[in-house]
Amino acid sequence: MKRLRPRAQEMLDELVDAVVRDEPPADLVERGLEPFPIALVSEVMGVPGTDRDRVHGWTRQIISTSGGAEAADRAKNSLYGWITQTIRSRADSTGEDVYSLLGAAVAGGDLSETEAVGLAGPLQIGGEAVTHNCGQMLYLLLTRPELRQWWQERPEARDGLLDELLRYIPHRSSVGLARIALEDVDLRGHRIRAGDPVYVSYLAANRDPDVFPEPDRIDPGRAPNPHLAFGNGPHYCTGAVLARLQTELLLTTLFERLPGLRLAVPADQVAWRRRTMIRGPRTLPCTW
Rank of each mutant, 00 (worst) to 15 (best):
88 R>Y: 03
124 Q>P: 06
194 A>K: 13
82 W>N: 05
87 I>T: 08
61 Q>H: 02
221 G>K: 00
3 R>K: 07
51 D>K: 03
172 R>Y: 12
132 H>W: 15
34 E>N: 05
159 D>V: 15
253 T>W: 09
288 W>E: 10
267 A>T: 04
100 S>N: 04
28 L>M: 01
131 T>V: 10
270 V>D: 09
98 V>P: 04
133 N>V: 15
184 D>Y: 14
86 T>I: 06
178 A>I: 04
23 E>L: 08
30 E>N: 11
101 L>W: 02
74 R>V: 13
147 L>T: 12
47 V>P: 07
96 E>G: 04
248 E>T: 15
177 L>T: 13
286 C>L: 01
24 P>A: 15
117 V>K: 00
3 R>W: 08
88 R>E: 10
117 V>G: 04
224 P>E: 08
270 V>G: 03
159 D>Q: 13
41 V>Q: 03
283 T>V: 15
217 R>S: 05
11 M>E: 03
225 N>Q: 13
211 V>H: 04
71 A>L: 10
180 I>G: 00
156 E>K: 09
3 R>A: 14
159 D>W: 11
133 N>D: 09
154 R>A: 11
87 I>M: 11
224 P>S: 05
19 V>L: 13
218 I>A: 03
131 T>H: 00
251 L>K: 00
286 C>R: 06
177 L>S: 10
26 A>H: 11
225 N>F: 15
27 D>V: 07
72 A>F: 11
162 L>S: 12
90 R>A: 04
146 E>F: 02
130 V>R: 07
252 T>P: 01
32 G>K: 00
232 N>M: 14
22 D>N: 14
64 S>I: 08
99 Y>K: 02
21 R>Q: 12
21 R>Y: 08
277 M>K: 11
275 R>S: 15
128 E>A: 14
25 P>F: 14
108 G>N: 12
176 G>N: 01
270 V>C: 07
248 E>Y: 03
130 V>S: 08
123 L>Y: 03
231 G>F: 03
283 T>I: 09
93 S>Y: 00
282 R>W: 03
19 V>C: 11
219 D>S: 04
235 H>V: 08
217 R>M: 03
164 E>R: 02
283 T>N: 13
10 E>T: 07
199 Y>T: 08
33 L>H: 06
256 E>M: 01
101 L>H: 05
76 K>G: 12
182 L>N: 09
186 D>V: 15
83 I>D: 05
129 A>P: 04
216 D>F: 12
122 P>W: 09
81 G>S: 13
63 I>R: 05
219 D>H: 05
8 A>I: 01
214 E>C: 09
50 T>A: 14
233 G>D: 01
142 L>C: 06
77 N>F: 15
100 S>Q: 07
241 V>Y: 07
282 R>N: 02
254 L>P: 01
228 L>M: 13
205 A>T: 06
35 P>W: 00
206 N>V: 08
130 V>W: 03
273 R>C: 09
257 R>F: 12
67 G>R: 10
208 D>E: 12
205 A>E: 02
243 A>T: 05
137 M>E: 00
60 R>H: 08
4 L>D: 01
105 A>T: 01
44 V>Q: 02
177 L>D: 05
118 G>V: 10
39 A>E: 11
55 V>R: 02
164 E>I: 13
257 R>G: 09
84 T>H: 08
265 V>G: 04
191 R>L: 15
174 S>Q: 12
229 A>E: 06
88 R>F: 04
172 R>F: 14
122 P>R: 07
